[in-house]
């Protein structure tokens, strides 16, 4: 498969993820959409690395995965503590600066 197929796929996946973040109100789904965007970028990195003959793109993907894991743990902890405070994970419900 030529490179542009991969890049177009990655672009579409990235924009689906982006629209998910914009459209959805559920923070967990938004979080998942961010993961999807990271995945799309990973895909383009690996594809570029393969077609460039340079392994460093894959190292980049590795670090993105590390950051995603860290993001998941902290992000979900934040979601849980927000849920404890306002009993909702919807962004439209967290509309007060102070509890």
């Amino acid at each position: 498969m030529p490179l542009n197929y991969y890049i177009v796929l990655a672009t579409i996946l990235f924009s689906i993820g982006m629209f998910g973040v914009i459209l959805r109100k559920n923070t967990i789904v938004m979080f998942m959409c961010i993961e999807m965007m990271l995945n799309a970028v990973n895909l383009s990195f690996v594809a570029f690395s393969k077609f460039h003959g340079n392994l460093e793109g894959q190292i980049g993907v590795f670090f993105i995965m590390v950051v995603a894991a860290a993001e998941a743990s902290v992000g979900l902890a934040i979601i849980i503590s927000v849920f404890r405070a306002i009993v909702s994970v919807e962004t439209s419900d967290s509309n007060e600066l102070k509890l």
Binding site: L43, V46, A47, M65, A68, A72, L76
Partner: peptide, 30 residues
Amino acid sequence: LFAMLDAHFLATAQIIVYAGAIMVLVIFVI
């Protein structure tokens, strides 16, 4: 797709990290 691009390590890491850890955590929270 990673495996098709001969990125064998990343394909496995993708399954272990994303499917095996992050998504389990997300499902756990949901």
